[in-house]
Design a binder for these strands. Structure first.
Length: 285
DNA sequence: AAGATTGTTGCTTA
DNA sequence: TTAAGCAACAATCT
């Protein structure tokens, strides 16, 4: 599942190659993946350029150089954004996606650039989207995001206010994009493990010390996951089609009935905030 | 072969 | 009024 570290990995990959190249072609293989209509989507993109590649939470934000429209891309659960250029192919070695066969049956949108490069939007489950909006529609969308957990606006005091004022579970708060942007099911579980707190604890039952541990764990886990270029459980790939590396470091997510790497107890899996939730009964209280 | 998988929306409930 | 809970969506795997 692309969460903040995965989307940030893709953002960085694409930010170095997409901007300021003229869009010469747009192929839409699945009309429901784009908005507004396929015709308008094509019309706006053709001849246009991507100005920059930004991110808010799990949402990619690509303003266009017409200064009127913005391309929004959400990968939801199984979305991929893969950049292919002949230059990469020639370069070979690291990052070269020479063995990718694209477009594939899960390619729903393809954007062709004048320099010969192509950007593929793939999505096996078809939950994700590529949406063009007028520039003035962006701010109401951005208002629905809480602070970026790795930005200076996310302070211990901010997190304390979020948690102490809520009777919901810690996990529900970590997953709530209005409260904190970008955390999904994998990192919510990993953050709770790193903090020694059970995900189903009521947020307003946490001590100050526990809140501080969650604050520090949030930074530690998200930074480490970005450094490892994200977690690939099944579908995630970076902007060049390569898998991430953080799955090697997961302590609880996807490890039900396996031994805790810290204490040896068996990792439990239950349901919290409507999601599969993993924790160590010994390390987390 | 029914159920689990999860991000987000929108509706219902408290 | 606010927020929490939950079904729905989609496709695939077990």
């Amino acid at each position: 599942m692309p969460e903040l570290p995965e989307v940030e990995t893709i953002r960085r990959d694409l930010a170095s190659v997409l901007p300021l190249h003229k869009i010469g072609g747009v192929e839409i293989y699945h009309a429901k993946s784009v908005a507004p209509s396929a015709a308008k989507f094509k019309k706006i993109l053709l001849g246009n350029k991507i100005q920059k590649v930004e991110r808010r939470g799990k949402l990619l934000i690509l303003p266009l150089t017409d200064n009127k429209n913005i391309l929004l891309i959400h990968l939801k659960m199984t979305g991929q954004l893969i950049y292919f250029s002949h230059a990469h192919k020639i370069a070979g070695g690291h990052g070269a996606n020479i063995d990718l066969d694209l477009p594939s049956k899960s390619t729903h949108v393809e954007i062709d650039f004048a320099n010969g490069a192509k950007l593929y939007f793939n999505d096996q489950r078809r939950f994700g989207y590529c949406k063009i909006i007028p520039i003035e529609d962006l701010s109401p969308i951005l208002k629905k995001f809480g602070p970026e957990p790795l930005a200076p606006t996310f302070t211990l005091a901010v997190l304390r206010a979020i948690l102490q004022n809520s009777a919901a579970s810690v996990k529900a708060q970590l997953l709530n994009q209005i409260k904190i942007a970008g955390i999904g099911n994998i990192y919510a579980d990993e953050i709770c493990f790193a903090a020694g707190v059970r995900p189903m604890r009521r947020a307003n039952s946490l001590t100050d010390a526990e809140i501080k541990k969650i604050f520090l764990a949030t930074h530690k886990i998200l930074r480490a996951a970005i450094a490892a270029r994200g977690t690939t459980m099944s579908d995630f790939v970076d902007g060049r089609g390569a898998a991430g590396g953080y799955q090697k470091y997961l302590k609880v997510y996807g490890r039900a009935k396996e031994k805790c790497r810290r204490c040896g107890a068996l990792i439990l899996k239950t349901r919290a905030a409507g999601r599969g939730t993993h924790y160590c009964p010994e390390c987390q209280k």
